[in-house]
Simulated assay, not measured.
Amino acid sequence: MESNKINYVELPARDLEANKAFFSQTFGWTFVDYGPDYSAFFDSGLDGGFFRAEFCSRPQTGAALVVLYAEDLESTLARVESNGGTIEQTIFEFPGGRRFHFLDPCGNEWAVWSKPLED
């Protein structure tokens, strides 16, 4: 482990089972439960966990936005939708790439980005 580097992230989840199923099916993450109110996730690029809470993480309320990377943005968006995610912002361009925002089953906002399309 590197000292002074971001090592772990924790996010709220109203329904741990729904979020575990969503992220497992959509992104291939694995989980380890630590009691009934906490589940750690792995295989995500940065390890973290979901804790049971009745609130959600949204940038509009001051929370950090967690951004994932995907080689194929369109197929990732389709998997998000088919597994129960809600598209908050459809694919748009920004300097350096393209991305979309989605809500997980518990209402947390995430983004997925990819490199720009080749001309």
Rank of each mutant, 00 (worst) to 15 (best):
Y38E: 03
G45D: 14
T90P: 09
P12L: 06
E74P: 01
L46C: 10
F102A: 01
Q60Y: 14
R14G: 08
E54K: 09
T90M: 00
R14H: 10
G97Y: 05
W29E: 10
G49P: 05
G96Y: 02
G62Q: 12
G107E: 11
F42T: 10
W29S: 11
M1G: 12
D72V: 08
E88Y: 13
E118F: 14
F94P: 03
A111P: 02
E2L: 14
L103Q: 13
S39W: 09
G49W: 14
A21S: 08
H101Y: 07
R58S: 13
L117A: 11
Y8I: 10
L65I: 06
G45I: 07
G85H: 12
P36M: 05
Y69D: 12
A13I: 00
F42M: 15
K20H: 01
L68S: 05
W110T: 13
Y69Q: 11
D37N: 04
V32H: 11
F27R: 10
S57H: 15
A78E: 07
A70W: 04
F31S: 00
L77V: 01
E93Y: 02
L73K: 06
M1Q: 04
E2H: 14
A21W: 01
E2Q: 15
F51M: 15
F31P: 10
A70M: 12
T26G: 10
A21K: 11
N4C: 07
F94K: 03
T26W: 06
M1S: 13
D33R: 02
D15C: 01
D33N: 05
S24Y: 09
G96L: 03
P59G: 03
C56Y: 14
I91N: 01
S24I: 08
